[in-house]
Amino acid sequence: MSIDGELPKRQLAQARLGNRRGAVMEFSAADTCLDIQGLTLAYGGKTALKDLTLRIPRHRVTAFIGPSGCGKSTLLRALNRLHDLNEDVSRHGQIHLDGHDIHDPRVAVAELRRRVGMVFQAPNPFPMSIYDNVAFGLRLQGGLSKRRIDDVVEWALKSAALWDEVKGRLRASAWSLSGGQQQRLVIARTLAVEPEVLLLDEPASALDPISTLKIEELIRTLKPHLTLVLVTHNMQQAARVSDYTAFLHNGELVEYGPTDTLFTHPRLRRTENYITGRMVG
């Protein structure tokens, strides 16, 4: 996503179903944003992800669903190497972002995280002003003029549909905003560094229905510019906003397909049980 111009529209390759693990969708290399190959992840001996292989398409919303502890958040956090902080985590397998291995020793992890932005479950604005929150990532990069920062902050807040609500009080503390506003501020903060991928870890689970709706609208408006990956507990939300859905269970990828297909004609009994609520998550 870029502040300066529209991105060319891309045709999505026809999703081809069926491969190992029952459900792996194949996109052409050009349409694949994140390519996860045989990813296995363990926390201090306990396996959280078992040999996952899936491709996440560019400029689409992909949702991860599954019961608690199925590994969907773990998978999300693997995509921007947030697990690096935890010394107990061991990993096998590769993740490619635009064809480049993100675990390559030459990759600067800070730069990777700038390109793969993340929004967390609970809104986590920093204890500073609204303006400083959005400018935080920009200032880390350094070398930007004050005017440029002003412009980007305004653009990011507009992109996150927050500008009209806060334009008069950019110097107010970010903690004075409501929960929904805070979450949109966090999205604006992430957008300000112009990421290519936006990871959303249950972004609306701590919010009221109206704020949830606003976040979902925002996801839809961002879709043409960004690859979005959404983890959610809320089946309706996945159905409403995502183009593709992956169902994970016990660290395994059970089924992955276009959202419409997966929710209306799941191929596997386990998937059906989960989305119809017979398997309690």
Binding site: R114, F120, F126, F136, G137, V193
Partner: peptide
């Protein structure tokens, strides 16, 4: 809170 640190890290802070 951990999520404050993660928030900064996720923005590309070292």
């Amino acid at each position: 809170p951990l999520h404050q640190r993660e928030g900064a890290l996720a923005l590309g802070a070292t």
